[in-house]
Write a protein that binds this DNA or RNA. Structure first.
Lengths: 221, 221
DNA sequence: ACCTGAACACCGTTCAAGT
DNA sequence: ACCTGAACACCGTTCAAGT
């Protein structure tokens, strides 16, 4: 359960937008995005749900603000001699920020309006590629390929939201009723995933693949 | 507006699960996933919303069934001499199926239970890679990298759900208030996207990049 | 300035009752 | 067997009223 407002004192400290957003992030982290309703978030802050509309335009604005919090956690390294070094660092930082906040990956692509944190992130990524010398059309394609990999991977890794303990049993149950005969390769794949507890989700592998492929296209040798 | 049930006759033809799913797909295609409520879908079929529960377990089951419809549209080519040929075909077919049904991309990763159509798709993709001779650990990483690219790209391309006409004006309005000074590369990028009306979304470029990178890792020369 | 209570127009879902 | 009506427990959101 995220932090509650203490109501021991007669009058509580007044709400701010930042406190509302932080409480929203904490609530969604712990209980999932489904538990994030205006009334519930209000309760978490010791207030009626309607009071939140004084600090947030509507629920969409709340979610946008929460995404800004996530974007603010991404480190933005400066360029070195090889563009792939900062690109790799920033991508990994973005990936782990999305993984820390499991609800954020699906919202990341669907939110239209960008705040300063997300703009800064995107600008930094684009600048890195431009300074590496990518021509305009390649730059755009490179940017989207990297970005897709980041959010695609987070979404997919979070698609199976199972705890370590449940994993074992749910896997057993699944495989008992699974039509192995008809989908043998899929069965193998699921078994493979059940065995290694998703210690490495393959994010860095795919990233490496993409960055190296892009480097080859940048400077055709 | 999707197909309606004709109520000219006194007693209408009875509902089936397939008709419910097809109507759901049509409604979501035309009016967006937000318009897909049980009551509204019932109305579309000339019936009260509650009647749908005779053919569908609940709304989640409805959405799963609709995803199965989308998965059924994906062509599954057999392997040739170069594994990249069928992999490319299937990926492009999957990408355009997701693009034909804009609501499906975000659901694709979040849905847990798989039906036969989606299982067949996944099994086909995995078999293709196995037959190409990828070793187990590489196979898994290759599979996810390709899959992430497909859904990541569809989601991102559909993130800006603007019509051609609105695009122009919305872009103008956005760029007037945009802090170009602070995010110059992002500004460039947005301008670039407004100029070319997303004729090519770069999907095949990234796909090419990934498949070639994987081929290099498969047979290190 | 900030919060509350009541209200509105919606949701998904259940279930007894109809045919 | 299939559908309807009424009901339940929720949503997001608005707004007059309180302090």
């Amino acid at each position: 359960v995220p932090q509650r407002n203490d109501r021991s004192e007669g009058h509580r400290t007044p709400l701010t937008r930042d406190r509302v957003l932080a409480a929203g992030v904490a609530l969604a982290d712990v209980e999932g995005i489904g538990a994030l309703t205006m009334r519930r978030l209000g309760r978490e802050l010791g207030v009626e749900g309607m009071a939140l509309y004084n600090h947030v335009k509507n629920k969409g604005d709340l979610l946008d603000g929460m995404l800004e919090c996530v974007a603010g956690e991404i480190e933005l390294p400066d360029g070195g001699t090889d563009w792939r070094v900062p690109a790799r660092q920033r991508s990994i930082s973005a990936h782990s920020a999305l993984m820390r906040h499991p609800w954020s990956a699906t919202l990341w692509t669907s939110s239209i309006s960008l705040g300063p944190a997300r703009m800064g992130y995107l600008d930094s990524a684009l600048r890195c590629l431009r300074e590496a010398g990518f021509p305009a059309h390649l730059l755009d394609l490179a940017f989207h390929t990297i970005e897709n990999h980041i959010v695609g991977h987070a979404q997919q890794a979070l698609g199976f939201p199972l705890e370590r303990d449940q994993m074992e049993e749910a896997g057993e149950r699944l495989m008992r009723s699974f039509p192995v005969r008809e989908y043998p390769d899929l069965a193998d794949h699921i078994r493979h995933h059940l065995r290694e507890h998703a210690e490495d989700d393959g994010f860095e592998f795919g990233l490496h693949l993409i960055l190296n492929g892009l480097e080859q296209m940048r400077s055709p040798s």
